[in-house]
Simulated scan of single mutants.
Amino acid sequence: MVSKIQDKVEEYAGAAQEAYGDVTDQGDHYARGAARKYASQASYAVKDAADTIKQQVSDKPYAGLAVAAAVGVAFGYLLGRK
Protein backbone atom coordinates (compact mmCIF):
# COMPACT_ATOMS: atom_id res chain seq x y z
CA MET A 1 0.00 0.00 0.00
CA VAL A 2 2.83 2.39 0.83
CA SER A 3 4.46 1.84 -2.57
CA LYS A 4 1.19 2.72 -4.32
CA ILE A 5 1.03 5.97 -2.36
CA GLN A 6 4.64 6.67 -3.27
CA ASP A 7 3.80 6.06 -6.95
CA LYS A 8 0.96 8.58 -6.75
CA VAL A 9 3.23 11.16 -5.10
CA GLU A 10 5.83 10.61 -7.83
CA GLU A 11 3.11 11.01 -10.47
CA TYR A 12 2.02 14.35 -9.06
CA ALA A 13 5.63 15.50 -8.70
CA GLY A 14 6.27 14.55 -12.32
CA ALA A 15 3.17 16.42 -13.45
CA ALA A 16 4.32 19.50 -11.52
CA GLN A 17 7.79 19.30 -13.04
CA GLU A 18 6.26 18.85 -16.49
CA ALA A 19 4.04 21.91 -15.97
CA TYR A 20 7.02 23.93 -14.74
CA GLY A 21 8.97 23.01 -17.86
CA ASP A 22 6.01 23.94 -20.03
CA VAL A 23 5.50 27.32 -18.36
CA THR A 24 9.19 28.26 -18.36
CA ASP A 25 9.73 26.78 -21.85
CA GLN A 26 12.48 24.47 -20.62
CA GLY A 27 12.31 21.24 -22.58
CA ASP A 28 14.61 19.42 -20.18
CA HIS A 29 12.26 19.89 -17.21
CA TYR A 30 9.24 19.08 -19.36
CA ALA A 31 10.76 15.81 -20.62
CA ARG A 32 11.99 14.71 -17.20
CA GLY A 33 8.63 15.50 -15.62
CA ALA A 34 6.74 13.61 -18.30
CA ALA A 35 9.04 10.60 -17.96
CA ARG A 36 8.69 10.66 -14.17
CA LYS A 37 4.91 10.95 -14.38
CA TYR A 38 4.41 8.15 -16.91
CA ALA A 39 6.88 5.82 -15.20
CA SER A 40 5.04 6.17 -11.91
CA GLN A 41 1.69 5.63 -13.64
CA ALA A 42 2.99 2.42 -15.19
CA SER A 43 4.40 1.26 -11.86
CA TYR A 44 1.08 1.93 -10.15
CA ALA A 45 -0.81 0.04 -12.87
CA VAL A 46 1.46 -3.00 -12.58
CA LYS A 47 1.15 -3.09 -8.79
CA ASP A 48 -2.63 -2.71 -9.04
CA ALA A 49 -2.83 -5.55 -11.57
CA ALA A 50 -0.67 -7.77 -9.36
CA ASP A 51 -2.90 -7.06 -6.36
CA THR A 52 -5.99 -7.86 -8.42
CA ILE A 53 -4.51 -11.14 -9.66
CA LYS A 54 -3.45 -12.07 -6.14
CA GLN A 55 -6.97 -11.40 -4.86
CA GLN A 56 -8.60 -13.39 -7.69
CA VAL A 57 -6.30 -16.37 -7.16
CA SER A 58 -6.90 -16.38 -3.42
CA ASP A 59 -10.66 -16.27 -3.99
CA LYS A 60 -10.66 -19.02 -6.65
CA PRO A 61 -7.47 -21.09 -6.41
CA TYR A 62 -8.55 -23.81 -8.85
CA ALA A 63 -9.30 -21.31 -11.59
CA GLY A 64 -5.88 -19.72 -11.04
CA LEU A 65 -4.24 -23.14 -11.24
CA ALA A 66 -6.09 -23.90 -14.48
CA VAL A 67 -5.01 -20.61 -16.05
CA ALA A 68 -1.40 -21.15 -14.95
CA ALA A 69 -1.43 -24.65 -16.45
CA ALA A 70 -2.87 -23.36 -19.73
CA VAL A 71 -0.21 -20.65 -19.94
CA GLY A 72 2.48 -23.24 -19.19
CA VAL A 73 1.22 -25.55 -21.93
CA ALA A 74 1.07 -22.66 -24.42
CA PHE A 75 4.62 -21.55 -23.59
CA GLY A 76 5.84 -25.14 -23.77
CA TYR A 77 4.26 -25.56 -27.17
CA LEU A 78 5.70 -22.32 -28.51
CA LEU A 79 9.19 -22.89 -27.13
CA GLY A 80 9.26 -26.53 -28.14
CA ARG A 81 8.64 -25.85 -31.83
CA LYS A 82 11.66 -26.10 -34.10
Rank of each mutant, 00 (worst) to 15 (best):
M1A: 15
V2T: 10
S3I: 04
K4N: 15
K4Q: 13
K4A: 15
I5M: 14
I5T: 12
Q6W: 07
E10S: 13
E10F: 03
E10D: 09
E10H: 09
Y12G: 02
Y12M: 12
A13Y: 05
A13K: 15
G14C: 05
A15D: 07
A16S: 15
A16H: 10
A16Q: 11
E18Y: 04
E18H: 11
G21M: 05
G21T: 04
G21F: 01
G21S: 05
V23F: 14
V23I: 14
D25F: 06
Q26T: 08
G27H: 09
G27R: 11
D28F: 04
D28W: 01
D28H: 11
D28C: 00
H29R: 13
Y30H: 14
A31I: 06
A31D: 13
R32W: 03
G33K: 00
G33C: 07
G33Q: 06
A34P: 00
A34R: 10
A35T: 13
A35G: 10
A35F: 02
A35L: 12
R36Q: 15
K37L: 01
Y38A: 09
Y38S: 15
Y38F: 10
Y38I: 07
A39H: 05
A39M: 07
A42C: 04
S43Q: 13
S43D: 09
S43N: 13
S43E: 09
Y44G: 09
Y44C: 07
A45D: 12
A45E: 06
A45V: 05
A45K: 15
V46G: 01
V46I: 07
V46N: 11
K47S: 15
K47T: 12
K47P: 06
K47D: 15
D48L: 15
D48M: 13
D48F: 11
A49E: 05
A50S: 12
A50V: 04
A50G: 02
D51P: 03
T52D: 08
T52W: 04
K54L: 08
K54H: 11
Q55R: 14
Q55G: 09
Q55M: 09
Q56Y: 06
Q56S: 12
Q56L: 10
V57M: 08
V57L: 03
V57P: 04
V57C: 10
V57Q: 08
S58G: 01
D59E: 12
D59W: 01
K60W: 01
K60Q: 11
K60E: 07
K60P: 03
Y62K: 14
A63F: 06
G64E: 03
G64P: 05
G64H: 01
L65F: 03
A66S: 13
V67N: 11
A68F: 01
A69W: 03
V71D: 07
G72V: 01
V73A: 13
A74E: 08
A74L: 04
A74C: 04
F75M: 10
F75R: 05
F75I: 13
Y77M: 06
Y77R: 09
Y77E: 03
L78P: 02
L78I: 01
L78Q: 12
L78W: 03
L78D: 07
L79F: 05
L79D: 01
L79H: 08
L79E: 02
L79K: 08
G80R: 07
G80E: 02
R81M: 02
R81W: 02
R81S: 08
R81N: 07
R81A: 07
K82M: 01
